[in-house]
């Protein structure tokens, strides 16, 4: 019930098991328990649960993980398509000219 899964077979997460050193930091940072350890190496056990946040790839010291990261946010996709600065919660702009009320959605 609490284990929500979004669309299937879309995630870009890739694990190159040859490069994995088994440090298991990916298991620590992943917020959706995508990885398990198998014989001292990481393995993707629940690919569809991945939300492409990129925490695992960012923290993998042996660069065994790749993923096309981004915010899964429709408003941001629309803004990008329209050539506007992404809105969504995650707008980060120069501190002094934060536009008032770009708080369109999220978080």
């Amino acid at each position: 019930m609490e284990k929500m899964i979004y669309l299937k077979n879309v995630v870009t997460l890739q694990l190159n098991e040859k490069n994995c050193t088994g440090c298991s930091i990916c298991m620590v940072v992943c917020p959706h328990a995508v990885f398990i350890m198998n014989n001292g190496r990481a393995q993707i056990s629940n690919r569809d649960a991945c939300m492409e946040c990129g925490a695992c790839a960012m923290n993998c010291p042996s660069e065994a993980l790749t993923v096309e990261t981004g915010v899964g946010c429709a408003a941001a996709v629309i803004n990008t398509a329209l050539g506007r600065e992404g809105s969504c919660c995650c707008i980060i702009e120069a501190k002094n000219d934060l536009p008032k009320d770009q708080s369109k959605s999220c978080c």
Partner: peptide, 11 residues
């Protein structure tokens, strides 16, 4: 955008 489990590829 508010949810905690949607991926960009999926969206």
């Amino acid at each position: 955008g508010a949810s905690t489990y949607t991926s960009l590829s999926g969206v």
